[in-house]
Design a protein around this nucleic acid. Structure first.
Lengths: 189, 189
DNA sequence: CTAAAGTGTCAAATAATTGGACACAAATGT
DNA sequence: ACATTTGTGTCCAATTATTTGACACTTTAG
């Protein structure tokens, strides 16, 4: 099954060619840019399913700052499009920063074709997950309730709803997404 | 301002000592474990604000598999407690996997004390953020609507609400809480 | 041991959600 | 091109949820 459109941004033509070949049978459409400057325009035109973004565009500058900046710009404007970063300079700090800035994944050159495809598919799948509103609500309610140590008044306050409504909500979903054995944190006594 | 309890798990006593000194004035309470085996018990007893977890516990094994496994175990059972990983073997793949498995951050030994403190505070802050229910709802609604290209029927369907309700919701928040820059001209249309 | 804060539960007023309906615009198939 | 399907905006009345306020009671802190 093909997975829509991918936008690849890299200043190295050889890389673009290699990626095109590698991804030809995975995507319906492959759009490439050799510079990120017009990336927002291209995104608006192509509406890509996923973006593969190189981190270094100035020769001799390998800090990845430029890619990081573009990551932020794109992610801010299109938070729903997964962005996979790719770089020749494996740097843990950079990778961590990228993921915390919204990157879906981070791969290093030279890459393994199968791994790249897997990573991209994975990013698309994760971005495509849509959960129903009430499930989102229930999860959040329990999270906040947890953080308030079960204090429903405070939790309701933080959630912006009335105490009684919180009651109804927790009553409506008694045993939600708790995996594991039966003891919750705080059940000491 | 002190930031509650931190649980530090590392098999190297010297590291534990060093961390204790480093973090003494940042946390009210520092709990240490030299092995992750009883970590769930300790968490239940201490209810830590944040966890600092080493990735390697078997000498000679530096794949980080063990730390990764414990990260998963802890994160699954306590998704609200931020877990910062620490490792001597800077490995991009490992770091990426860790973050995707729910780690709040990833630091490498030897660490910088100030940076470690900053990272921990950051993790705590991020985990402590509580957003009101209606804001969460609005953001999710807009995200799903986006993914459906504005098709309200489909979006309502995916959200598990009726089409009219979706109408009301979008009508109620025309320019919602999107963090943000003013207007980046997409010049798409 | 008080006072303050939280709990569980109720009821009545208010708001939101639903399912159905309708005329019309847009996309789809043949 | 035409007919069919699908989606849009917008109503309505019936049903649910939510809120506000209240009450007796337990827990927590000073």
């Amino acid at each position: 099954m093909k997975h829509g459109t991918i936008l690849v941004i890299d200043d190295n033509p050889a890389i673009l060619t290699a990626v095109k070949i590698c991804l030809a049978c995975t995507f319906e459409r492959i759009v490439t840019l050799d510079s990120p400057e017009k990336v927002l325009v291209t995104i608006a035109q192509e509406n890509p399913t996923v973006i593969l973004l190189d981190m270094n565009f100035s020769l001799g500058v390998n800090s990845g700052q430029e890619g990081m900046m573009w990551l932020s710009v794109i992610h801010r404007k299109h938070p729903d499009i997964p962005i996979v970063l790719i770089t020749a300079y494996a740097d843990v700090k950079l990778a961590v920063r990228a993921l915390k800035n919204g990157a879906a994944d981070f791969v290093t050159k030279p890459w393994d074709n199968d791994e790249l495809i897997r990573v991209l598919k994975d990013a698309i799948d994760k971005a495509g997950e849509i959960i129903p509103l009430d499930q989102l609500e229930t999860e959040h309610v329990r999270k906040v309730l947890n953080k308030c140590d079960g204090n429903m008044k405070k939790a309701a306050d933080l959630l912006g709803i009335s105490r009684q409504t919180l009651y109804n909500k927790v009553k409506a979903s008694p045993l939600p997404p708790l995996r594991g054995e039966g003891k919750l944190r705080g059940e000491g006594e």
